[in-house]
Simulated scan of single mutants.
Amino acid sequence: MSVVKVETLERQAALSGAIAAAESQAEVLAALERAAHAFGFTYVTLMVKFNEDDEYMARLIIQSTLPADFVREFDRNRFLAKCPVLPTLFDTMLPQAWTLENLEREGVVPAQITQLLRRFSLFTTVVMPLHSLDGERFLLRFDGKRPPLRQSEVNEFAMISLHAFDVFEKIRRTHRIAIPSPLSMRELEVVRWTAQGKTSVEIGRILSLSDHTVNAHMTNAIKKLDCVNRTQLVAKAIRLGLIA
């Protein structure tokens, strides 16, 4: 057995052990940060899938070690709507990897975004689209300054990501059961149907309520979760595990 293969197996065993031992979301993130460093990356981010009208990355991030200044500048410039790469990442089940050099050479990403990535040394990225048992979509992303990944490393990354997300989901489901929802059952129903793209009138028909009553439940839910609109409400409810 080659030295490289032995080192790979030892790394997998160590990282899998750390992930399996995690008892909280924070510990899962710590294990993923350890995995990031083992692969030569600096940062790790777990984010939920965004809608077309979402404007801020910060509202979609569940856990991340990215510099706060990077996220603030990304959002201040509304780069989420200007980046053609991110939306496509949720349309596949396979890991994706790229380098800043490739993005700049192909010109698929606005220069302002690549300049920001360069300033924070985000030269190489690998992402893994993930799906929960109840259909929610997530993205696990590693960023840093290292050479392009070999295919064997991408495959290894995929295995580690799936294991970590499985542990993360089990903890999240347990947390969801243990902590009572701040929303009433009717408010949760309204938010769930809103997440499915239904209007107040359509939700009223489904639940046999007037659209005025539906809007009242929506307003209450927005206030309880300290949100400013329906889009933010749905995103926050998903992140808190209140809806599937």
Rank of each mutant, 00 (worst) to 15 (best):
Q96W: 08
T213C: 05
A58R: 12
A38V: 02
F138Q: 03
D54N: 15
Q115G: 04
D226I: 09
V154G: 02
A14E: 13
T45W: 01
A244N: 15
E106D: 15
R137P: 06
V44T: 13
R146F: 00
T199H: 06
P180G: 04
N102L: 13
R172P: 02
A13E: 04
S24M: 00
D75G: 09
L9F: 12
E187D: 06
F157M: 05
S64D: 08
M93L: 11
E10W: 00
F168V: 05
A13R: 08
G40T: 13
P67N: 04
T42C: 00
A68C: 05
V4Q: 13
V214I: 14
E23K: 11
E169W: 10
K198D: 00
T213F: 08
V214F: 11
S2E: 14
Q112S: 15
F70D: 11
I113W: 03
P148W: 10
A237Y: 03
K82D: 12
A30C: 01
D166L: 02
H212F: 13
K145H: 13
I61Y: 00
L133Q: 13
F50H: 15
I113F: 04
Y56T: 09
I238W: 05
P67V: 08
A164C: 09
R205I: 06
D143H: 13
V44C: 09
S210C: 03
E136T: 15
D134S: 14
N155F: 08
V85D: 05
V126E: 00
I61R: 00
V44K: 01
Q63C: 01
V3S: 09
L188M: 11
N51L: 12
R239D: 02
E33Q: 15
L242C: 11
R230F: 02
L149F: 08
K49F: 03
I203E: 04
I160S: 01
I179C: 01
R172V: 10
S24Y: 03
S161L: 07
Q25T: 12
L60H: 10
L66W: 05
L233R: 08
L240H: 11
H217W: 10
R11I: 11
H175K: 07
S152N: 04
Q12G: 14
C83V: 09
Q12Y: 14
A68S: 12
F39I: 04
L100R: 00
R76W: 07
L240M: 14
D166N: 11
L188Q: 04
V108L: 12
T125H: 01
E104A: 09
Q115N: 15
V3R: 05
F123L: 05
Y56S: 07
R186E: 14
F74T: 07
I179H: 11
F39H: 03
H37E: 06
L233T: 02
A14C: 06
I243V: 14
T125K: 00
V6Q: 12
F138S: 07
I19S: 08
